[in-house]
């Protein structure tokens, strides 16, 4: 036969307004998943400062000799940006966990008719938990 026309991905990105709950849930789950695995790598990298610290490596922190692990963590936590990123991380993790619970239920065949409602519930709950945790996460940063 003759040629045909491949419309490519136009409908994937241009039609986001028409996405249904399940599609948004998938997009958010994937995005938060990428963030979390990225964080896991940086997390281990930062915590690795415990290895030289255990061997006695020190650094100057706030005018006194501190081990490199404690010094690194506490100085990072002193930055407002890090604190804000941590709140973001909490939001990402909480959503991934709540929506993950939703997906586990879907895998077990429970509540498939309410899958859109359970997505909205996980969004709202994520918001609530994040807002409620802000004081704890920001405490002492100023």
């Amino acid at each position: 036969m003759s040629q045909s026309y491949n419309r490519g991905l136009i409908e994937d990105f241009s039609r986001w307004r028409e996405f249904e709950a399940g599609m948004w849930a998938w997009i958010f789950h994937k995005f938060t998943g990428w963030v979390l695995i990225g964080y896991l790598f940086t997390h281990i990298a930062v915590l690795s400062t415990a290895i030289p610290a255990a061997n006695g490596a020190t650094m100057m922190f706030q005018g006194s000799e501190t081990d490199v692990f404690t010094g690194t963590i506490v100085s990072l936590e002193g930055l407002l940006l890090v604190r804000i990123l941590e709140v973001g991380l909490l939001a990402v993790a909480v959503f991934h966990m709540l929506n993950g619970t939703r997906l586990l239920l879907v895998d077990l065949g429970i509540g498939l008719e309410a899958q859109d409602k359970s997505f909205y519930a996980s969004l709202i709950l994520t918001g609530a938990i994040t807002v409620a945790s802000v004081p704890t996460f920001i405490a002492g940063a100023f």
Partner: peptide, 26 residues
């Protein structure tokens, strides 16, 4: 996933709410 759900919640709770992140020491 099911395992991580529990342990991640515990991890966050222990190291942010019970102990604060800025009070970490070696």
């Amino acid at each position: 996933a099911a395992f991580l759900l529990v342990v991640l919640a515990f991890h966050f709770f222990l190291l942010h709410f019970v102990h604060h992140a800025d009070e970490v020491t070696l």
